[in-house]
């Protein structure tokens, strides 16, 4: 990429540096936006109906924002942020996905992670794997 020479201050593993990384950031950004917006609406309008599910929505939104920022920045700190948030995502989608199937009473209203993200075309299930693959693929030599 032509601009790579001019971005000497940006770590080489920053997702912003490559085209595929930018597409990944776009998808992560869409989920950061949709998960946070959903949580904001749920918490501000009918929080008492299902506090656990709505707090979980908010956590999911924050985790997506952190993952987007971490992947975009790269470097030691960005990698650590991305690694932690992608891992939380993976555990979150698996645990919440399983619980929402097994114990529907605890999750009366949906979050991004309910039913393994079926309401979002299962993208929330795939996304942490892609993020972790990106971190693994760009590990320091």
């Amino acid at each position: 990429m032509p601009e790579e020479n001019s971005t000497t201050t940006r770590p080489r593993d920053a997702a912003l540096n490559s085209g595929l990384g930018r597409v990944l950031l776009l998808v992560y950004g869409i989920f950061a936006l949709s998960a946070s917006a959903r949580a904001l609406v749920q918490i501000s309008t009918h929080f008492s109906e299902a506090p656990l599910a709505y707090l979980l929505s908010a956590v999911a939104g924050l985790v997506y924002i952190a993952a987007t920022a971490g992947l975009a920045r790269g470097g030691v700190r960005g990698r650590m942020i991305a690694l932690v948030s992608c891992s939380i995502e993976l555990v979150g989608v698996l645990v919440v996905g399983t619980l929402s199937v097994v114990d529907a009473v605890a999750f009366p209203d949906d979050t991004v992670w309910s039913h393994f993200g079926s309401g979002y075309g299962y993208v929330p299930l795939v996304l942490p794997f892609v993020g972790l693959w990106w971190i693994w693929n760009h590990r320091p030599a």
């Binding site: 990429m1 490559s18 085209g19 595929l20 930018r22 597409v23 776009l26 998808v27 869409i30 075309g121």
Partner: peptide
């Protein structure tokens, strides 16, 4: 937004950005 981002990325990945945009719109 997808058009602006795709113009900033004049590679195959710019086409994928437009593709992602066109896939999210029906949703």
């Amino acid at each position: 937004t997808a058009i602006v981002l795709a113009r900033m990325e004049p590679t195959r990945w710019g086409s994928l950005i437009l593709g992602v945009g066109a896939l999210v719109l029906p949703v």
